[in-house]
Amino acid sequence: PPRPPPKPGPGEHPLQYNYGFWYSRKSQGNKSASYDANLKLIGTFASVEQFWRHYCHIARPSDLNGHTDYHLFKEGIRPMWEDSANKNGGKWIIRLKKGLASRCWENLIMAMLGEQFMVGEEICGAVISIRYAEDILSLWNRTANDGVTTARIRDTLKRVLNLPPNTVMEYKTHVDSIKDNSSF
């Protein structure tokens, strides 16, 4: 049965949206069936304080190993290309040298939870993907063909992440990800 939506507790600071925290780890074996099956919801939250209670109990991204992702998405949106909120959307992709993942992930989710992107309902969620040689940060939005919105998201990302000037940022539509089935 669906769990009841979280509510801010007494004295807590509400967020604009409720969110869900997800975890996934690539399994050996059946590649096509595994993505959805490997997604695990860690928990949902509605306030700043509830967010920190989850965050403080999970490993920092840089301490994870193997092929592991954290996903932080608005409640009701599954972190999948095919979800109705994502199917016309896309994502900004930022490839990080090893060692930067924890700091950049934290900066990204602070900006998302604090509504710093100023693009209305467009933000769907954020992902940090831990890989062998590099880590990958991505921010998903609803409407891939809205150039004004995607440019505004890019500019805010640059500001809040405080990345080296030569960092490459790439935008990819989920339609293209579905076509080539090899996002990273």
């Binding site: 507790g9 004295g11 807590e12 600071h13 509400p14 967020l15 604009q16 700043v48 304080e49 920190w52 209670r53 403080c56 900066n107 602070m110 900006a111 939870l113 604090g114 509504e115 710093q116 809040v160």
Partner: peptide, 21 residues
């Protein structure tokens, strides 16, 4: 309605609140 904005520094301060433990 009005949106709820938080600056990074404020969110980081909330991490130390007893309510966040």
């Amino acid at each position: 309605g009005s949106r709820i904005f938080y600056e990074r520094n404020f969110l980081m301060q909330c991490r130390n609140s007893p309510l966040a433990k």
